[in-house]
């Protein structure tokens, strides 16, 4: 229901944009749109694990930043592109692990901790960015990537495998994103870990009484979140063929907005990977549309903030409406039963 509503909204938006802006409905724009959606989508996908588990992670932007720098430096060693990407994922997972351990083992508040680590990781990215100066000062330089096989991974399909069919204009990351979204849907819905993630998000006490190790599930959630941010960052750098340390700020907010719009509730226990996917498409479509209408970018900030609040209000009122409906139905049922008895 909720998903269909969002998808419907996306389609209406696309229709409106296509009719109103002449440069919206074309393959080039869709390829660009899908790339942006994929980047945000990967972040949201990782974040969905934390959010379904009842948590929040504000460090995604920081992880994107530091992994971008690490990947670009790593690529100078001349390693194959795929190794760089794997390296990025591992780095991201490591930073996620740090978050997870701080939150679950040291017992710190999640949003303050990840807010701090987010700033910390961004700073760490800067630290790695100053290559040879040896001094913690000076201005930042973008590092141009020269590693060919790495750069190819950020490009379109046609660049990788030659021109082939309808997919050729889309990016590798887009395809990977969709594959992973489907995979994560199954991880969340069909594995023991997924089950336990929902359990700790929906009713942690009951989960604990059933023998679920909450701290472990939480930590793994953060690791997955970090790994996805790392993956997204590795592809982004390859696509932009340069990394700089100002990358990544604000992405954590976009990712949260995407999840919330898609229907992953802030309290936890609701939504799934498809929600994250739809939410990212929604957000990116709107941002893209604004861009096509030549609406100044600052509107996008306003819109994102408003979207989070509106989506939360909508979900809350919808949930209370559904509950009332259910109670009324239960009342009627028990009333009938009482009459029979």
């Amino acid at each position: 229901m909720r998903k269909l509503a969002t998808v419907g909204f996306v389609l209406i938006l696309m229709l409106v944009f296509s009719l109103q802006a002449d440069n919206f409905f074309n393959l080039r724009n869709f390829s660009e749109l899908s790339f942006n959606a994929a980047f945000l989508g990967l972040l949201a996908l990782g974040l969905s694990f934390v959010m379904i588990g009842g948590g929040i992670d504000l460090s995604a932007g920081g992880i994107v930043c530091v992994v971008a720098i690490l990947c670009s430096r790593f690529s100078f060693l001349g390693t194959p592109g795929i190794v760089v990407v794997v390296f990025g994922v591992v780095c991201g997972a490591f930073f996620g692990l740090c978050n997870g351990l701080l939150v679950s083992r040291a017992g710190l508040t999640e949003f303050v901790t990840t807010l701090a680590t987010g700033i910390l990781y961004q700073g760490l990215g800067l630290l790695f960015a100053f290559r040879d100066t040896g001094k913690l000062s000076g201005t930042l330089v973008s590092m141009g990537i020269t590693n060919k096989s790495y750069l190819a991974l950020g490009g379109r399909f046609s660049a990788l495998f030659g021109a082939r069919g309808a997919l050729k204009d889309f990016h590798l990351m887009t395809v990977i994103w969709i594959v992973l979204a489907v995979a994560m849907y199954f991880v969340l819905r069909r594995t023991n870990f997924g089950l336990r993630t929902y359990a700790i998000g929906s009713h942690p006490k009951a989960a604990e009484m059933s023998g679920v190790d909450i701290r472990r599930v939480k930590t793994i959630g953060f690791v997955i979140c970090g790994a996805f941010a790392g993956l997204a960052s590795a592809f982004l750098v390859a696509n932009m063929s340069a990394a700089n340390a100002s990358l990544g700020s604000g992405y954590e907010f976009q990712a949260i907005a995407a999840c919330v719009v898609g229907g992953i509730a802030l309290g936890g226990g609701k939504g799934d990977a498809v929600c994250a996917l739809i939410g990212s498409v929604f957000l990116v479509t709107i941002l893209n549309g604004l861009y096509k209408f030549n609406i100044p970018t600052y509107w996008s900030y306003i819109l994102q903030g408003v979207i989070i609040i509106v989506a939360t209000v909508f979900d809350a009122s919808f949930a209370s409406f559904a509950r009332r409906l259910r109670e009324r139905r239960a009342d009627r049922a028990s009333g009938e039963e009482a009459m029979r008895l």
Binding site: G62, L102, V112, T113, L115, A116, T117, G118, I119, L120, Y121, Q122, G123, L124, L126, L127, L136, S137, G138, T139, L140, A245, S246
Partner: peptide
């Protein structure tokens, strides 16, 4: 660098 000060900020908060 003012950008690097972020790192310190995050570390101090944490």
């Amino acid at each position: 660098s003012p950008d690097f000060q972020k790192f310190a900020q995050g570390a101090i908060i944490l």
